[in-house]
Design a protein around this nucleic acid. Structure first.
Lengths: 216, 216
DNA sequence: GTAGCGATGTATCGGGCCGATACATCGAGG
DNA sequence: CCTCGATGTATCGGCCCGATACATCGCTAC
């Protein structure tokens, strides 16, 4: 799961570990608070061994700081890595529908083609519906067997499930009618800068707006 | 975390692994779908080594089935185990406030004294408030930097945070005024059988209603 | 000036938990 | 008779986490 997220971020721009962690935290803030270094660095090593990314010492003509005494390793995605990213984005296994997996996939939906988006959204909905049914069963059948606090926990969980299903339903409707997301529970009035109409190409469009040096 | 849950369930009645897993699933359905055997059995082994539980082959005069060719190991909590359970219930570290940890603690609130309940509820609230502030920051500051889907994910997450804070607030209020939980978002009308007034003793009352054979 | 402090930065280690897998028994139905 | 699904115990590789260690930079305060 982390692999997908890292590849996705490195596709936007090369980065070093620390930066990557921060970006991960803001992009996936809902899913996991902050990725641990004990996860990040081994994963980066794995990705490097697999040939999906390369690491290089930051050249001195970098940003402002550092006279490059120690480290500052910059990670960059390779062609294989981009291919891998596209594969991971498109294929949906069972782990695509759990909380973490779904969150990561969703966070990169703007790089996913519509058919896959719909498939994932529907798979997730089914998953949550199953959890919901399980909770309803417990609440109606095993109610007397459980104490008041456990019951309250189940009720709260059921509530969350129902809300998420409604959210997913809305997103699915929007996808089918070709609209972009947002404008659901409008409490913020953020400009939503880019890609509001969202043409939606095939798969893995090579980014549009933000200028970045892919490779020289 | 699992340790607490297992000890808690075994305190009600001895069980074998399969049963334990099912009980775990219904009691913690909101938190984790179903515990893996790859987690359960090693944990049971650990608990046994630590002396918190004992395992014994089920005697033939058990329920109906099994002529006891192979296995059916029944796990039972020890005095040390009960002590350990009480310790884990009362002490609250940082992991007490993450999703899984809080859920497990909450599920055993009927065995927790009120002061501890309040401490945990408030710790959890603070945790969620921090997450909420982080999401608000991202939504207001980094909005233009993120695509519509990522933004929608954050909005949904923020919504969930706000709702959970409200839920916790309600629970805290109820605790302070001595009422039991429930009756919050009334959509079910389950009798709530036992302990609605809830006297709340010290800690670890030795079960009340359900008849069960602790040992023959 | 220099001493401390907080942010930046890279890296490892032990351990918890998961999914996949294997194996074994039992009752019910074709 | 024989398969199928529920019950049941157990291990293995692998992901991910928290704790920990170490090193540098820029700032403020003494």
């Amino acid at each position: 799961m982390l692999e997908l997220a890292i590849l996705g971020l490195l596709q936007e721009t090369p980065m070093h570990g620390y930066e990557l962690r921060k970006e991960l935290a803001t992009k996936l803030g809902t899913i996991r608070a902050a990725i641990s270094y004990g996860t990040l660095y081994p994963t980066l090593k794995r990705l490097k061994t697999a040939g999906f990314i390369t690491e290089s010492a930051s050249d001195p003509s970098m940003i402002p700081p550092m006279t490059s005494k120690r480290g500052r390793v910059v990670y960059k995605i390779t062609a294989d890595g981009k291919e891998r990213f596209a594969d991971l984005l498109a294929q949906a296994g069972p782990e695509t529908y759990d909380d973490a997996g779904f969150g990561v996939h969703f966070a990169f939906f703007s790089r996913t083609d519509r058919a896959t988006r719909l498939r994932i959204l529907e798979g997730r909905r089914r998953r949550i519906e199953e959890r919901r049914e399980g909770l309803r069963d417990v609440l109606s059948r095993a109610a007397g067997r459980l104490d008041a606090y456990t019951l309250e926990l189940q009720r709260h969980g059921l509530d969350a499930c129902e809300r998420e299903v409604r959210w997913l339903e809305e997103l699915i409707t929007n996808e089918r009618s070709g609209r972009a997301p947002a404008a659901s529970a409008g409490s913020f009035d953020i400009p939503t800068a880019e890609q509001s109409p969202e043409p939606v190409g095939g798969d893995a469009p090579p980014e549009k707006p933000r200028p970045h040096q892919d490779r020289p």
